[in-house]
């Protein structure tokens, strides 16, 4: 019996089909971003416990007014210097005795924060502040925390904090994840993110 040959398929129209699909995807694509600054809001007002008094020196006031000007501790400051100022405040470690911070590398100014555990950054914005300015300030403050955590993680575990978090989400990570999670918690507790946001201040004319 003669072997029957499989019929040849004409592939000439393949390019046309591919073009059609390509154009469909080109038109329907919206390269959507799913990245952003994650934050956790404070609990609802009724569950909110009365504020514990914070010493003035442990408070870092960041204010944004209605014309997008940045004020830190009531003095105007350029956005580029905000990160350095926040790091200097958080890492100050001015406390003595019980509040002594052994890992801080700051100036140890007794007039600035005692310990990273006590240092609170307060961000106040006006109702008229622009969103992009607000995001820029948030970003700088978050990066101040990230830099300090990176430094401590690098000192203790030889990895940056970002790498540790990256490994935690990596399915191919070979080490123990429970151990990694504990290490991350420990670094977080060295520099806890204490960022308080008050209600926006209304403009007084």
């Amino acid at each position: 019996m003669a072997r029957r040959l499989a019929p040849q398929v004409n592939a000439g129209s393949m390019a046309d089909i591919a073009f059609l699909l390509l154009i469909f995807f080109l038109v329907s694509t919206t390269i959507d971003t799913d990245y952003g600054i994650s934050r956790r809001l404070p609990p609802p007002p009724e569950k909110f416990q009365p504020e514990i008094l914070i010493k003035e020196k442990n408070l870092f006031r960041v204010e944004l007014n209605q014309i997008n000007e940045l004020f830190v501790e009531k003095k105007p400051l350029d956005l580029k210097q905000l990160k350095a100022a926040a790091i200097a405040f958080l890492d100050n470690g001015g406390g003595t005795d019980g509040d002594y911070c052994s890992y801080c590398k700051g100036a140890r100014n007794p007039k600035s924060s005692d310990h990273p555990n006590k240092a609170v950054i307060s961000l106040i914005n006006s109702r008229e502040t622009n969103y992009e300015t607000y995001i820029a300030v948030q970003n700088e403050l978050v990066s101040a925390y990230a830099e300090l955590r990176d430094r401590e993680a690098l000192r203790i575990y030889g990895l940056t904090f970002k790498q540790m978090v990256g490994y935690l989400n990596d399915a191919n990570y070979s080490g123990s994840k429970t151990k990694l999670r504990e290490q991350i918690k420990e670094i977080q507790s060295l520099y806890p993110e204490k960022l308080s946001e008050a209600e926006p201040v209304s403009v007084e004319l």
Partner: peptide, 30 residues
Amino acid sequence: DKNTKMGLIGDIKKELREVDMRNINYTTKI
């Protein structure tokens, strides 16, 4: 949108707090 005023965002955050939806993400471009 980057040109929005923070007043509206503050109101949204207040609403979210009241329903205990506390994880938020300010989606941005990198």
